[in-house]
Design a protein around this nucleic acid. Structure first.
Lengths: 133, 133
DNA sequence: CTTGCATCTGTAGTTACTACAGGTTGTACC
DNA sequence: GGTACAACCTGTAGTAACTACAGATGCAAG
């Protein structure tokens, strides 16, 4: 059994964050000592690792909630898990392509600027203009 | 002179957002009608376009505040503008590379899953494991 | 003058945490 | 058994950049 501090060290998750996950119902309420300190078992450590790992992969807390529901469901619905993952993958891909466009535009306007003490900075100019991405 | 609704239509910026920008001091307080309705002139439209365009390019409101300070400063410090832009460009590039890694991992774990009604879903398995990105 | 849309202020909600303040518990040491 | 001190507790407020109301007015057309 671990205290919250031990769990924190094992998972690299801040104590406040662990309590936060409990508050929003992502982690279930652990048993307590007489004095009220939380005590965690292996199952709960596993759950928190799952959350951390999913967060690292960019899943939202809501998506993680969905994944837990699927994991805990009687029928192991692998297809649904895959659907959530692929939806998320699409979101990530979309984000990458958006950022690439941004990168291109920023590079373009930045390269036009020579960095001198010119009154008419091409970067500023282009920011005052309507979009032409 | 435009009402807030007109400004909203011209810039594609929600009315609430315009008021929000005013509240946080990003847009200056416009004159009002007798009854208290906001009236905007061309200068303010320009400012809002600047904000929208910068937001589209992913600048934070804080970065935009900095850009305004530079624009309004007596000395037109083009170099500083370029610095802000290139810093932002670096952030964007970093985000892209992070997302690419994510995409790779998600693709990897997703492809391992056949989508059947298997109890041991490889996606779930890998989420219960510590990172190996 | 009335209808009805536009606008007003102020507050609360969103996401995923983080950062306190002010109080209590657990434990190591004497 | 007392005491020092770290670890823990609860509850609230703050972060970014808005969005979404509620409930009250303003304005313009018929």
């Amino acid at each position: 059994m671990d205290t919250i501090g031990g769990l924190s060290r094992k998972t690299g998750c801040h104590i406040e964050t662990i309590r936060y996950y409990e508050r929003i119902g992502l982690l279930s309420k652990p048993p307590r000592t007489e004095g009220g300190h939380r005590l965690y078992n292996k199952e709960q450590i596993k759950r928190l690792v799952f959350i951390r790992r999913s967060r690292e992969l960019g899943f939202s807390l809501d998506e993680i909630r969905t994944l837990f529901r699927l994991v805990d469901g009687e029928r192991s619905t692998c297809q649904e898990v895959k659907t959530v993952t692929e939806q998320h993958l699409q979101d990530v891909s979309k984000k990458i392509s958006d950022l690439r466009k941004l990168q291109k535009t920023l590079r373009a306007i930045s390269s036009q600027c020579e960095g001198g003490l010119v009154p008419d900075c091409p970067i500023i100019e282009s920011l005052f203009e309507e979009k032409r991405l």
